[in-house]
């Protein structure tokens, strides 16, 4: 099951050129671009591991692509990698854009668990199949 989180996730994967253009758009708006990765893609897991530091002073997308390629060297195929853009202007101070750039080849998806509780009520919870295995060995 294809993971759909963040922007563009219903589109085919972005090419490097498209990623570069998106990153340049973020930089031109004055947002700091971050590269994050995780192997626990649960929708509620909003804090992914940060690759390096937020790139506040990079002026050109090539710098971000350089780091993205470094991150791919380390994690491609085993982790999800996403690019996010943080707007530090007062009153925003939050993410403005986030999209997945790389995903594992095989995405087993999520299971929906129904828990029967008092009075025939049901509690739902989702769990990634991959998360059954230990961290680092999931994909």
């Amino acid at each position: 099951m294809r993971l759909t989180q963040g922007a563009f996730s219903f589109l085919p994967d972005l090419t490097d050129q498209q990623i570069t253009r998106q990153v340049q758009y973020c930089i031109d708006n004055g947002w700091a671009v971050n590269i994050e990765f995780t192997d626990d893609p649960h929708p509620r897991n909003s804090y992914w591991e940060l690759w390096g530091q937020p790139m506040f002073d990079v002026r050109d997308a090539a710098g971000v692509m350089f780091e993205l390629n470094e991150c791919r060297k380390a994690h491609k195929g085993q982790h999800y990698i996403r690019v996010s853009a943080f707007d530090s202007t007062h009153t925003w101070e939050s993410l403005r854009l986030s999209f997945i750039t790389d995903r594992p080849a095989d995405e087993p998806g999520f299971t929906l668990e129904r828990q029967e509780v008092e009075g025939r009520s049901i509690r739902y919870t989702t769990r990634a199949y991959a998360a059954n295995r230990p961290e680092g060995a999931r994909y």
Partner: peptide, 14 residues
């Protein structure tokens, strides 16, 4: 290495 790469990243496009 991180220091040099950081500088290179900043300089890219320029």
């Amino acid at each position: 290495a991180p220091k040099t790469k950081d500088v290179l990243k900043r300089a890219m496009g320029g």
